[in-house]
Nucleic acid binder design. Structure first.
Lengths: 108, 108
DNA sequence: ACGTCATTTCAATAATTCTTGAAATATGAA
DNA sequence: TTCATATTTCAAGAATTATTGAAATGACGT
């Protein structure tokens, strides 16, 4: 995962509405959720939702697929794990470390 | 971890320089690194570095301590794990899921 | 083809965030 | 105390990002 995409992904998540959208889709799992249903659950206007979904899509955190006249969005779990790996990479320079709960860190 | 702090933390990381600073401190581990050394390694001006460190501190991602005339910053690993937990909370509504590498998700 | 519903795009404005350099503060050394 | 070094603060301008409503697109059922 390249640094620019990581910055973009973090920026996408760094907003109240988009964070809520993403978490909703994480809970929804691979089945995902239609744009309209997301808008309804979070009380967002269509244009605002679309703006935020575009941002999340561009960051590759969510993926849309067409289903009839709905567009279903689902969370991209690979992007999530890639992001976490990037943040914790080479934690404590490889020494057994204080952050043992983190994936990719050597346990103490 | 409350949602506002998560948004702040993600926003703090969503910037090339701050992401680089944080990753440097993750590698440095609990010993941390003096502000000046960070500036040198990343080629940042003092005021710009200070601005970004303040932002990271405010998001509780890094913690400063005074050491002589230096100020040593270190990564806050608890905040990092809290952030990851927040993002992946109730992944796939609790069902064994596609994102099995994520902490907090039930394995498939 | 027509009407309807789901979603996206656009343009204008408003709000937030970044960068820079100069000045201020604080610590330790001489 | 005086000096040099480490770091932060401040203010101004530049750049980016968010919000809104109206209009446009695209898909389906009739």
């Amino acid at each position: 995962m390249d640094s620019n995409l990581v910055v973009r992904a973090l920026g996408a998540l760094a907003h109240e509405s988009r964070l809520a959208i993403f978490r909703l889709l994480v809970v929804a799992g691979p089945d995902g959720m239609a744009a309209g249903e997301i808008a309804q659950q979070l009380g967002l206007s269509p244009s605002s939702l679309s703006f935020h979904l575009k941002d999340l899509s561009h960051a590759e955190l969510v993926t849309p697929r067409q289903d009839g006249r709905f567009i279903i969005y689902s969370a991209n779990f690979d992007a999530m794990t890639g992001l976490i790996a990037f943040l914790t990479e080479n934690c404590c320079a490889g020494a057994p470390c204080a952050a043992s709960e983190l994936p990719g860190c050597r346990k103490k």
